[in-house]
Amino acid sequence: MGLKEVNFLRAGTTLLDFSRERVQPLGFIALPVSFSDDNGYAMNMVNFAVIRAKSGYNAILRRTTLNFFGMAISMPHLYVKFPTSSGVVTIRGDVRQASRSFQITAQLVVDQLDPRESQPVIPQEGVINVILGGEDSSKVVNLFSSMNDKQ
């Protein structure tokens, strides 16, 4: 995002990332955040922890920030609404962009997996292991032996 580390406030704190691994923040910084549409706007300084991580996101807003703005979020409809002195602001998401962001994030997670750390597949009773892509492939699908041909 082009932030300079000289502007970060140092703190001796450790965070847990989404995979529950400990992450040492590079620092903390307060940045102005504003939301607007034709009905109005709202702005406030928001504190961010800056970390080095592979992610499809540039910033993640915490519940405290969303609550400060009085935001009501509808994930299925991809929109956020919140009141201002001028009226209710509605911010709509973009389904294509959200899907693309999800794909990028999922690929980053896959890229971080270490194939040497995978556990061997242990056959279980009633389960058939099917190898995909030929005998040399490491791709295995487990199927219940009671499934019919159509399933």
Results as ranks from 00 to 15, higher is better:
26 L>S: 07
27 G>A: 07
28 F>Q: 00
28 F>K: 11
29 I>N: 00
29 I>D: 01
30 A>D: 01
34 S>M: 07
34 S>V: 03
34 S>Q: 06
39 N>D: 01
40 G>D: 04
41 Y>F: 13
41 Y>P: 04
42 A>D: 10
44 N>C: 02
48 F>E: 01
50 V>W: 13
50 V>M: 00
51 I>Q: 09
53 A>M: 13
53 A>G: 08
55 S>H: 12
57 Y>A: 08
58 N>A: 15
59 A>K: 02
61 L>I: 09
62 R>M: 00
64 T>M: 03
65 T>I: 04
68 F>S: 07
69 F>Y: 12
69 F>D: 06
70 G>M: 04
71 M>F: 04
71 M>A: 05
71 M>K: 04
72 A>C: 14
72 A>D: 15
74 S>V: 08
74 S>H: 07
75 M>L: 06
75 M>H: 06
78 L>H: 12
78 L>D: 10
79 Y>F: 09
81 K>E: 12
84 T>S: 05
85 S>E: 12
86 S>D: 14
87 G>K: 14
93 G>L: 05
93 G>I: 08
93 G>H: 00
94 D>G: 01
94 D>W: 01
95 V>K: 14
98 A>G: 03
100 R>I: 06
101 S>I: 03
108 L>Q: 06
109 V>G: 09
112 Q>G: 08
114 D>A: 04
115 P>Q: 13
116 R>Q: 08
123 P>G: 11
124 Q>T: 05
124 Q>N: 02
126 G>C: 06
126 G>R: 09
126 G>S: 07
127 V>K: 15
127 V>Q: 15
130 V>M: 06
130 V>Y: 11
130 V>I: 04
132 L>F: 10
132 L>P: 00
134 G>M: 05
136 D>N: 02
137 S>V: 07
138 S>K: 02
138 S>P: 04
141 V>Y: 07
144 F>Y: 05
147 M>Y: 05
147 M>R: 11
148 N>V: 07
148 N>E: 09
